Amino acid sequence: MEQASKIAELNDRLRCHHIGGRVMITQGIQVLDQNAIAEIIAAVSAFSDFTPDNDPWGEHDCAAMDVGEHRIIFKIDAYDREMTFASPDPADPAVTLRVLTIMLADEY
């Protein structure tokens, strides 16, 4: 499988099913009411509108969207297993720890 496709598959697995890494929400998301938080997390999980404009490398690692009255950005980063450096091979889950961060756009 092509490397970008494999990375996209692993990123989608984390984003859609919260499997294969950690999911983090920022303080800006944390202070919202529980319904808004649930709606935002569900919207990020359901997001599929990747295009060459918002996903030029085909890795499904970042996008922005509107959820209710909030502009949201999600970003997936691939670290080495110790979370010290970038992953040596983001297509290999054995050497990669993914972190999905969900934030308000104005926190970026």
Score class of each variant (00 low, 15 high):
Glu2Asp: 15
Gln3Asp: 11
Ala4Trp: 12
Ser5Ile: 09
Ser5Tyr: 06
Lys6Ala: 11
Lys6Ile: 13
Ile7Phe: 00
Ile7Val: 13
Leu14Met: 05
Cys16Asp: 01
Cys16Ser: 15
His17Tyr: 06
Ile19Met: 01
Ile19Gln: 00
Gly21Tyr: 01
Gly21Thr: 00
Val23Ile: 07
Val23Thr: 14
Met24Val: 15
Ile25Glu: 05
Val31Trp: 07
Leu32Val: 12
Leu32Phe: 07
Leu32Pro: 01
Gln34Ala: 14
Asn35Tyr: 14
Asn35Ala: 14
Ala36Lys: 09
Ile37Pro: 01
Ile37Arg: 12
Ile37Cys: 05
Ile40Lys: 03
Ala42Glu: 04
Ala42Met: 01
Ala46Lys: 09
Phe47Val: 03
Phe47Asp: 02
Asp49Ala: 11
Asp49Val: 04
Thr51Ile: 08
Pro52Glu: 12
Asp55Trp: 08
Asp55Thr: 10
Trp57Lys: 15
Gly58Ser: 00
Glu59Gly: 02
Asp61Pro: 02
Ala64Asn: 11
Met65Cys: 07
Glu69His: 13
Arg71Glu: 11
Phe74Trp: 09
Lys75Cys: 05
Asp77Ala: 10
Ala78Ile: 08
Tyr79Pro: 06
Tyr79Asp: 07
Tyr79Gly: 03
Asp80Trp: 11
Met83Ser: 08
Thr84Lys: 15
Thr84Gln: 12
Phe85Ile: 05
Ala86Tyr: 14
Asp89Gly: 06
Asp89Met: 05
Pro90Trp: 12
Asp92Ser: 08
Asp92Thr: 05
Ala94His: 10
Val95Asp: 11
Arg98Val: 06
Arg98Gly: 03
Val99Trp: 05
Val99Arg: 06
Thr101Arg: 09
Ile102Gln: 02
Ile102Ala: 01
Met103Gln: 10
Leu104Lys: 15
Leu104Pro: 15
Asp106His: 12
Tyr108Val: 08
Tyr108Arg: 12
